[in-house]
Structures are given as C-alpha cells and as structure tokens.
Computed example of a mutant assay.
Amino acid sequence: MNSHSSATRGSVFSRSVFGAPCWISLTTRDLSAAEKFYTAVLGWDWRVGKLGDQYRFASVNGVPVAGVSAVGAMEMAFAWTPFFATADADQTVARSQERGGTTAVGPISFAPGRAALLADRDGAVFGIWEGELVADWEDWRRAAPAFVELHTRDAFDAAIFYAEVLGWASGTAGCCEVQYDDEKVVLRSRGETVAHIHSGAVDSARDPAIRPRWQIHFAVADVDACLDAAPAHGGSIVQGVPGSAEAVLLDPDGARFKINARSAL
C-alpha cells in the first residue's frame, strides 16, 4: 500500500493519525480504462509501485492520493474503499469482530505495514492500515480526497461501532473528535473534518446507492469540466448538472464517488 520500499525521513506512521482516513483504494477490472477515466476527470498521474503491475498509484502534483487494483469480475464489487489508520491491525480486527463486524481480508503484511478489509455490522466495507503512511497526512488531505462519508441505517449506532473499533473520542492524544449533529455525525482529526456519517440507508435495498456504504468525496477545481469528462471516458452522471457545486459520478466499472467544488468546501 506504500509506494516506497523503506521509511523515509519525515514519514508519518498510522499511530500518529489513528482512527482517521489515511488512504483510499479502488478495485477495477480494467486498469487501463480506470487510468484514462480518472486522468480525464480528476487529473491524476500514475505509476506502478512495489506491489506489482496489478496495483497502480495515482498522484496529484507528486503526492500519492489513491491506489487502484485489478480484480476479476467475480471476485468482488468494483468500489472505492476508505482505509483508516490504526496502531495495531490485529487488535482493531478483534474489536470489530467482537462488536458484530466481519473480516473479508487480513490482516496481511506489506513491506511498510499491515492492512485488513472489514465490514461494519450493517455491511459497509472499510479498510484499516497499520504502518508507514503513503504520504504525509496533511499533504494527502490537501491533494485528495476532501472527506469520506458513510450512509447507513443508524448514524449514531454506527458512530459507536467505529469509535470503539478505531478509538474515536477515546481521550487519547491524537484521536479523532466526534460531534453529534441533529442529522449526522461529524468526525474531525487535527481540526479538519475528515468524515460524515448519515442515517437513512436501507439494509436490504437492491440499489447500492441506498445500501450502507462509504462514499469518497473528491475536491475539484471545476465541477462542470468533470461532468463533461466522465461520460466522454466511459463513466456516467448519477447526480449533477452544469453549474452545480457537487455531483455524483460512476466510473466505467460502476464505482461511485462524489465531487465537490473546492471553492465551496
């Protein structure tokens, strides 16, 4: 998950931003098509790292922002997944399982750390990462994404699950702060809003748009340009019209994400 083979001076480790989103990863069946789409829509550059030819690193102005992996059509859904920093992957997996979550993959080891893919008790998929971060956390946050958002059955119940699993609002130095609003839960790390949790998703819905899920928000300079580029490169527009400050898009494999005008954030 890291594009470097060894720790570098000034590296940030997951324990320093524990509980906060620290990476995002996309599964796709066609790396070439994904690269062309996200280059056109979000302006990303690409390179192959130490994880092999089937995993690509996207960057913005030299800052790694996301990983994209090729999977077979029958292996899993094509989707964006947020990864949250943790100081101990084994303990985090154990806490998730004790509270009704499930483990899909891991923890598995890479050169700079360990990762696992989990689902909360309502089925929303998320990842955890222990070890050296791909990029300085503040640099990554400025480059992409703007924040991540969970749509789920009960926002407050979900917040309790994640707080217990990821150490939110634990009182430990560096932990994420949780604010309960009337309609949503807001997660902050180092004073920045990094996640929202909303109620309203339906557990048994066939439509993935209303099943419990995490959604990635990308900050962009020009929403209209993204709306033009997405369908021209094999994607589609779920929500958004010219002049909008935000839009929901699908990539060529149907992976859903949201864009927000940087000026409106």
Rank of each mutant, 00 (worst) to 15 (best):
D253G: 05
D182N: 10
K258D: 03
V125F: 04
G171D: 09
R47L: 11
L42C: 02
G43Q: 09
S170V: 08
L227M: 09
G243M: 09
Y180V: 13
R141L: 13
I197C: 03
A104R: 12
E177D: 15
A155P: 10
K36D: 14
V63K: 01
F18W: 04
L26H: 03
R99A: 07
G113H: 05
V93K: 07
A79I: 12
V12P: 01
A116F: 07
V48C: 06
E164W: 00
A7G: 06
P242Q: 09
E246R: 12
R256T: 14
R121H: 14
A173P: 11
D30T: 09
V185Y: 04
A33S: 15
A85W: 08
D139N: 08
R114P: 07
C175G: 11
P231T: 12
G191K: 04
A230K: 06
F83V: 02
E98Q: 15
S3A: 13
D224L: 06
T152G: 00
V65H: 05
R188S: 15
Q179V: 15
D120C: 01
P145Y: 03
A79L: 11
D45A: 14
I197V: 14
E98K: 13
N61C: 04
A66V: 08
W46S: 09
G234I: 12
A20N: 07
I128D: 10
D30E: 12
L51I: 07
L187C: 02
A135F: 05
N2S: 14
L227V: 05
Q54V: 06
I197H: 01
D122H: 13
I197T: 04
G167A: 03
A115G: 02
S109H: 11
